[in-house]
Amino acid sequence: MKIEQYNMPDELHYEENHFWVKEEGDLLVMGMDDFAQIMAGEIVYVQLPDEGKKLKLGKKFAKMESGKWLGKVFAPVNGELAEVNEELETNPGLINDDCYGKGWMYKIKPADKSEIENLIHGQDAVEKWVLADIEKYAQE
């Protein structure tokens, strides 16, 4: 689904800080959505913690940087880190080039997969959420 200039695929689940999540077998794949990567500009660094790191819903587990701004990445569910996209170590710009494909960031082994249902999902919900954020940013 295209919401204004932002590509927000319908099938994905979204965390409120604009990270997407999707199921892949027993794991969840996570990355940054199009709205966030456009707002961030050129991404120069993504922290890739060690696999096995425990993730606590809503808590910071990694950092990333664009425009000299070091930001945080929050866990969308409880679980542990199963895999990181090693390619981002040398080429974090993959997130800008292909945020839903080659620019994926982490794979998570969820403690309870059903937690994904608490994320923003479905055309209406995603549209309402993104339009609200577009408006917040436009007010500046």
């Binding site: 707002m39 500009g41 425009g67 917040k136 500046e140």
Partner: peptide
């Protein structure tokens, strides 16, 4: 501001 550019 929410936008980084506007913040700076």
């Amino acid at each position: 501001p929410k936008k980084k550019g506007t913040f700076y």
